[in-house]
Design a protein around this nucleic acid. Structure first.
Lengths: 195, 195
DNA sequence: TTGCTAAGTTGAGGCTGTCTCAATATATTT
DNA sequence: AAATATATTGAGACAGCCTCAACTTAGCAA
């Protein structure tokens, strides 16, 4: 409901807009290189502005992350919607789970923020995470209706699974993350399922 | 093989021993309160010594953690050995996995250190983690021989699973962690198994 | 064009934390 | 009671977070 405006209330001054964009661009680069705990001072430095400017645009690290991820998270929710048309409900869920995993691991350390944000309603990322969870829930429900997934699996279980395997992928190797995802999903399948 | 001496090479001076113990005790308290990223200065302060003393006893945070966990990790390895006598191989594995999870969540943030340490051979905790992994492997192998677990599951898979569900437990709730553990183990079971 | 003002930027400064090392102190040995 | 090996100390160098009073500038209106 009360999502933050992507384009702020009143139009920004030209220089402000420029700095805002520049900060986002540098943040993307630096987070990709050093993870989401990278120095904010460094980002400001590389963007050619004083740290105060960074803080005025993005009061917290979360706010910066939120701005950086907005589009990507929207895309992930959209993708879930699209996959509702996929012929196999089970396969659709697996495809989406992998996509979610890929999204969650773009920046090192991101998964922890995303996991925290679903719990913490005051988080800048909360709404976006909630949307992703709900999107996943649609796919899950369809798979359950089709009989492929156990009825007692919740959207929270799915969200937690995706995040936990993303965390593993980040800590060890993407392949290890993928393996755990496969085991986890298998464990959530209905007993009648073979394999 | 080349484990670090629990009681250092030559006997410590009395005052050194006293400070060492004091630091460990305070670290246990403070890590329990604030997680493993708690301030080392604070630990030194509460132990009534200068920070240099802390650093001289424990050159890194990992070293401190290692000293703090040594006994507990040994106990976990021992427990695996004991459980090899349990009548049900499957049940033994599950019991141990839960114990491992409990161990892994004594301090907030610990799970990340433990996961890093299995990968990083230079880590102070590496040997202890390796021992735990090997201990788990025994239980896993027995369960596989008994036909309860898929043959393609590795000790690394098991280690990763335990850590990932511990991480979830830490981020959300222990109950959520438990749920994921159940799903994960189920996914690792042989197809012939019911449920 | 010029001046006005709201909007935006600056960067020093306070804070916490990590880690080091020369000077100092003390336990133990002889 | 030295002598010596062993420990402890704490200031200091550095980095990062965040704030805010002083300053600068874009954009508008006269």
């Amino acid at each position: 409901m009360t999502t933050v405006d992507p384009a702020p209330r009143r139009r920004m001054r030209a220089d402000a807009r420029r700095n805002y964009e520049r900060l986002l661009a540098e943040a993307a680069t630096i987070f990709a290189e050093h993870g989401v705990e990278a120095s904010l001072e460094e980002i400001a430095r590389r963007a050619g502005v004083a740290n105060g400017t960074l803080y005025s645009h993005f009061p917290t690290r979360q706010a910066l992350l939120e701005a950086l991820l907005r589009d990507r998270m929207q895309a992930l929710s959209d993708k879930a919607r699209d996959l509702l048309d996929h012929p196999s409900a089970d396969e659709a869920l697996l495809i989406w789970a992998r996509a979610a995993m890929a999204h969650t691991t773009v920046y090192r350390g991101l998964v922890t923020s995303l996991m925290r944000s679903i719990e913490d309603e005051t988080s800048h990322l909360h709404a976006a995470c909630q949307a992703v969870l709900t999107a996943g829930e649609q796919l899950l429900n369809r798979a359950q209706a089709a009989g492929g997934m156990r009825a007692d699996v919740t959207a929270s279980d799915l969200y937690a699974l995706i995040n936990s395997v993303s965390w593993v992928g980040e800590q060890t190797s993407p392949a290890q993350g993928e393996r755990l995802l496969a085991f986890g999903i298998d464990g959530m399948r209905s007993a009648t399922d073979s394999r």
